[in-house]
């Protein structure tokens, strides 16, 4: 019975002391401790979320970089293709021009050859004419060395004229 009979003295001291301790600890220990814990938890949480955000941003940046790189690559390919096309076109036109020029030159050469040929033929003709006249003259001269023959010829001419 002794054990389960609370004594007034201890009840008094326990109540007073406990209330004082509760007050002191609440004000000077629990409050700052709980605040510090909460603050630290918030700051850790913030840091974590910031890290997460940074990670996402990094990923975004990386993706963008890759996109830019791909675009740049495409651009390069396009430029290279265009350049090669332009080069090809240039070569093609040059070749065409050269062909044309060649053809023209050939045509010109052909023409001048033709002209030359014609001139040469004319000359040959003239030469032949002169030669034939000369030959005819010489023949005639030889033929007409006797007066009989001259007369005969004259007679022929006269016949011919009269006939005309």
């Amino acid at each position: 019975m002794e054990l389960v009979t609370p004594g007034i003295g201890l009840i008094f001291w326990q109540t007073v002391t406990f209330i004082i301790v509760l007050f002191l600890l609440s004000k000077f220990a629990w409050k700052p401790i709980m605040n510090a814990l909460n603050e630290r938890e918030t700051s850790i949480e913030n840091a974590l979320s910031a890290a997460e955000k940074a990670k996402l941003e990094m990923q975004g940046l990386k993706a963008e970089n890759e996109k830019l790189l791909a675009e740049a690559r495409m651009e390069r390919d396009k430029i290279l293709k265009e350049a090669s096309d332009a080069g090809n076109a240039l070569v093609e036109t040059a070749r065409q021009k050269a062909n044309e020029e060649g053809a023209r030159m050939i045509a010109q050469a052909r023409e001048s050859i033709e002209n030359e040929k014609r001139a040469a033929i004319t000359e040959v003709k003239n030469m032949a004419a002169v030669l034939s006249v000369d030959i005819a003259e010489r023949i005639l001269r030889k033929e007409l060395s006797n007066p009989q023959a001259q007369q005969e010829l004259a007679k022929d001419y006269i016949n011919e004229v009269t006939l005309n």
Binding site: V21, L25, F28, A29, W30, P32, I33, A36, R40, S43
Partner: peptide, 17 residues
């Protein structure tokens, strides 16, 4: 109790965060 927890509260104030 007071000594222990005041000390702890003090270290929280000192080493904030």
């Amino acid at each position: 109790l007071l000594v222990v927890f005041f000390t702890i509260a003090g270290s929280y104030a000192k080493g904030k965060g």
